[in-house]
């Protein structure tokens, strides 16, 4: 299946592998699960490797993110989300040791934000993550998501509004109590 010669392999190592974090992060927010994101990011990386021979240079991160996005959408099609399911990840939020209260308050903002983001439709999550977490321009987002630039811009502003109303609707203390 793999015809990479050594030079392709070196290029792959240099151009693609540095973006594993980016791939994982996008998958994590699209799938709302770290475990699934790990599987899908792995699959996407292998897919990129398989087709790397045809890569003529250019933005390897954008290419990888595009494939991650596509892999996520086909994964979501096969595994439709069962309602909104928010996980609490021990690895990500280690149990507070010293002063539970202060840590809970510090985590509260992040936790609320994370939950609010997860209530958005996947397309909105995707454009927000690409803009706010990856720092992509409208044009880059358009290339990665294969949607027109104009639509990217309107999606971004709608996504931001929806995120805000999701935030506004989540009572301030709820996140902490749930945890």
């Amino acid at each position: 299946m793999n015809d990479l010669d050594h030079e392709d392999w070196l290029r792959f190592e240099q151009l693609v592998l540095p973006h594993v974090d980016n791939a994982f992060n996008l998958a994590r927010w699209l799938l709302r699960s770290r475990a699934d994101a790990e599987d899908v990011a792995q699959e996407a990386l292998l897919r990129v490797c398989r087709f790397f021979r045809g890569f003529q240079g250019g933005d390897a991160r954008a290419w990888l993110l595009q494939i991650v996005g596509n892999t996520c959408y086909s994964w979501l099609e096969k595994n439709p989300p069962r309602g909104l399911m928010v996980e609490f990840d021990e690895e990500l939020h280690p149990q507070p040791v010293a002063t539970p209260e202060s840590i809970a308050i510090a985590d509260e903002g992040r936790e609320r934000l994370s939950r609010a983001l997860e209530t958005l439709p996947p397309r909105f999550r995707e454009v927000l993550v690409l803009r706010e977490l990856e720092g992509c321009s409208d044009k880059e987002i358009a290339a990665i998501t294969s949607i027109p630039v104009g639509t990217v811009m309107s999606s971004l502003s709608r996504a931001q509004r929806q995120l805000y109303s999701a935030l506004a609707n989540s009572p301030l203390k709820e996140a902490v109590r749930d945890v």
Binding site: L17, R28, W29, L92, L117, V129, E132, L167
Partner: peptide, 20 residues
Amino acid sequence: GRLQLAQLYEAAPASLRKKI
């Protein structure tokens, strides 16, 4: 002010790097 979405960035776990 509140939407510091960047703080949500989640780096890949070591296990993923290992698998890849």
